[in-house]
């Protein structure tokens, strides 16, 4: 009986295990290996030790991308969480018509970031785009080095707010009405209720969203590719974009892999730190 059950267990997990081993674990090891080589797409494959890491640090490309990604994260995550929360508090009031809005605001989330990036590129065109035409101004949203990253972050926020509000709506739905009833009897106004009750009670949801959104924003690629392609002058060159350009535009697979390895380590650290913090402070039921 028992060996048969064991065999069955192994058989059931076999396909997934093969998939994970071949297409996740092996590639990560391979990336680590390639990062020690001067590996040109078209020819040379020389072992160079830590040279790729050294040159990435020396020429500033890596630091620039880390900075760009960090700024992008700091611009987009807190704002989209705040706006998502505000939106959710209004949606859960369930006034007539809000069901339609609830569906509308999630639409951007199901659309391909690449396609949305292309649409926004059109809207942001300096002379012919809808935004400048509407406002009667001439701002170079995507080619001005100081505006490009905020513009990209804006599109990311625009895409995510509705999706984020879904989680807050679910979180708000779990807060018993009786608590609010008591607060109202005590004479608390809507802002006091939000500040002293809703936000603290939503902390599990907020933490969960903060982690997933930070991790996601460290991997953003498609939207940046369509909007700016990493320019102007590397001002929107997020880490994933740097990997792509190093690998497939400059043919430096070794340097690209080194960036990828660093990104992976960084995400491991972020996740572990956040997870520690998260599990020590709150208990959160995933289901």
């Amino acid at each position: 009986m028992r060996p048969r059950r064991s065999l069955l267990g192994w058989m059931l997990v076999a396909p997934a295990t093969i998939g994970v081993a071949c297409f996740l674990i092996l590639p990560v090891l391979l990336a680590l290996g390639v990062s020690f080589f001067d590996w040109d797409l078209l020819g040379t494959r020389d072992f160079v030790g830590l040279e790729n890491y050294r040159s990435l640090l020396a020429d500033g490309a890596l630091l620039n991308s880390l900075l760009v990604t960090a700024v992008f994260t700091l611009l987009s995550v807190p704002l989209s969480l705040a706006l998502g929360l505000i939106l959710a508090t209004q949606l859960v009031r369930a006034l007539p018509g809000s069901a339609v809005v609830r569906v509308i605001v999630v639409i951007p989330w199901v659309c391909a970031p690449l396609a949305l990036g292309v649409v926004w590129t059109w809207i942001f065109q300096p002379s012919t785009g809808a935004l400048n035409t509407l406002l009667g101004i001439r701002v170079e949203w995507l080619t001005d080095p100081t505006l490009a990253l905020p513009a990209v972050a804006f599109v990311a926020i625009w895409q995510n707010v509705g999706y984020i509000s879904l989680f807050f709506q679910a979180g708000l739905g779990r807060i018993p009405d009786s608590i609010y009833e008591a607060a109202r009897l005590d004479g608390a106004g809507p802002f006091q209720t939000l500040r002293h009750m809703t936000i603290p009670l939503l902390r599990p949801t907020t933490f969960f969203l903060a982690i997933t959104q930070v991790v996601a924003s460290f991997q953003v690629f498609d939207m940046v590719y369509a909007l700016t392609g990493g320019g102007p002058r590397h001002r929107t060159e997020v880490i994933a974009s740097l990997v792509y350009h190093e690998a497939f535009q400059n043919s430096h697979l070794g340097r690209a892999s080194a960036v990828a390895v660093i990104l992976f380590l960084l995400l491991v650290v972020i996740t572990v730190v956040q997870q520690r913090w998260f599990s020590s402070r709150i208990t959160y039921d995933m289901s």
Binding site: Q125, P126, S127, T128, R138, E140, L142, T143, D144
Partner: peptide
Amino acid sequence: PSAADTNANGDV
């Protein structure tokens, strides 16, 4: 024509 336009789209 402004470089903001021609940089973004060479065919302007």
